[in-house]
Design a binder for these strands. Sequence first.
DNA 1: CATTGGCGCTCCACGACAGCGAGTGCTGGC
DNA 2: GCCAGCACTCGCTGTCGTGGAGCGCCAATG
Lengths: 347, 347
Amino acid sequence: MNFMANETPALNERAQLLLKTLVERYIADGQPVGSRALSKFSGLDLSPASIRNVMADLEDMGFIASPHTSAGRVPTARGYRFFVDTLLTVKPLDRIEINQLEGQLQVENTQKLVSSASHVLSELTRFAGVVVTPRRSAGFRHIEFLKLAEKRLLLILVTAEGDVQNRIIQTEKIYTPSELVEAANILNQNYAGCSFEDIRRRLHAELKQVREDMTQLMAAALAAGDQAVSESAEDVVISGEVNLLGIDDLSSNMAKLRDLFNLFEHRTSLLQLLDVSSRAQGVQIFIGGEAGLTPLDECSVVTAPYEVDGKIVGTVGVIGPTRMAYERVIPIVDITAKLLSSALTQR
Amino acid sequence: MNFMANETPALNERAQLLLKTLVERYIADGQPVGSRALSKFSGLDLSPASIRNVMADLEDMGFIASPHTSAGRVPTARGYRFFVDTLLTVKPLDRIEINQLEGQLQVENTQKLVSSASHVLSELTRFAGVVVTPRRSAGFRHIEFLKLAEKRLLLILVTAEGDVQNRIIQTEKIYTPSELVEAANILNQNYAGCSFEDIRRRLHAELKQVREDMTQLMAAALAAGDQAVSESAEDVVISGEVNLLGIDDLSSNMAKLRDLFNLFEHRTSLLQLLDVSSRAQGVQIFIGGEAGLTPLDECSVVTAPYEVDGKIVGTVGVIGPTRMAYERVIPIVDITAKLLSSALTQR
DNA sequence: CATTGGCGCTCCACGACAGCGAGTGCTGGC
DNA sequence: GCCAGCACTCGCTGTCGTGGAGCGCCAATG
């Protein structure tokens, strides 16, 4: 008889404590928790029989469920939700752990930073780590042409954030090195920081005196640059998927597991989920199917946005089984986001 | 009674034909094949009983084995080996398929080319595709400094192959933009194409007239460049690991599967295997544990080296279950290597 | 009125067991 | 050399019975 009331029903202190210890025991053991075990671990001095009454109530309210008639109870998604929202006590990381974590981030360039962050998350939690690469602004800081062959140019593009993109361009005309330098100079001196959109619009109007073939070259560059930037606009880096293979909660259902890994491969829907997180401040938790993605049925996603110069540009997170040690994972994700923010900001 | 003779024993024509159809049936069905099935599909007009005699011989010679007393027979690693070496008839790909394949390669830059090649391989074979990224020469074609902050420089490095590397450098002194241009010019004009090793050696001797802090800057650049190049020297890109989750041959053994995916994550040992392949010409096949890696027990690896300007620089390949359709996979790997070679050569 | 011990019930897990089907090895006849 | 037939082996499947864990309910208790 589960009415799925929208408002969370009142839970007296005892029920809350019992729910809390039940969830904790289940997270620790992975076994359905019975009344006897609860009576032993709750700290309350109650007999199993009394506990059973409370458990029946909790079941009615949809916080816990029994896999079958005569097993213990396990938390439902809703039970986990209540647990993390009001029952959970996270313990912050040690200074030492933070330092370790910081030491593992590779700051050589943005890509390395992002992928090492993802890796660190997966190592520390033993689940899958995900990082959404920083959104890039549409503009550029520096542009450069390099001649590879007669009609092949290498376009190098430094974004405002200090990332480097590159692309090969086929040209119709053969340009001299000095022409290439000139074109690059024009773009760098007049338009650095502008969006490619703008530049294209202004190019015709403002540069009447520049030779036709030069504007052609620049237009080609802009198109390629535009494409390069928009294409690599946002992506999600996943590490440690392997860890999930070891989790029995997940690997018992081979079909589900495959769905899950498929989700990882077709990044787009995962990206949407993580984008949601980047609209909020602080750590967010998606439990089970809350995210709307069926493959994540038995998973939870813990995310936190990270920022550059106070502006949110991406999300880090961990994907693991619903039955995870939230009190550990949450601070890890939180700190990683903060470290990533500060590493990105000082550049 | 398996003596594991080193020399391949003589097999009369009938035995060969039967082994061939047995392997083919097993590859198609995945079920141990019995004498009855063989008598039906071999084309020979023999009764199951006679077939059984031949099968017993084949088993003695170690080409096939029975999983248990009363199942059919399954090819052993040795059986597969004989099969691919002398029994297999590969049918080349259609012109159409080749064109499709070519169309899916993304030629924008080397990284994309490599990862798309890996992806194509996995898509076409429905197994995991692997590509070892091209070996880079130690030298550079073009170098450039860009100021990010007072004491932070972005080093952009174009390798001889036209790849772009980048790296952030912390400096002690604050350099002016023109100093940066000057330093880059010196390196580009005098040392393009040389290895960083050489340059460092020659820098002191040849450039006495250049100011001390400039050589310092260049030295820092060289060190960073050296590191960037050597670090990203060789890596293996894997796609479509998910496909392997769907293969029942592999996903029945959860533990094995996990080992396999662990192998994928710690690239190094896989890299060694693939390097072996790049010392030979043409398609190579590693069956089961032949490669010396236990996680690959039930896998085969089909590889082919690819080249730039006639020089082998890397390897493409497919990792799948031993029970794979070799006659299809082999040409796919072959063609992909050739397409990759030609795409890389024209730049 | 909350708490508790007790009782009957339900369901899963596990092991034993039998029947079936597939396939083999062997033997004796052609 | 080939082949039909037979006995045998073994894994797979479904059934049955038992034991255990846990629950719901109820009546007794402080």
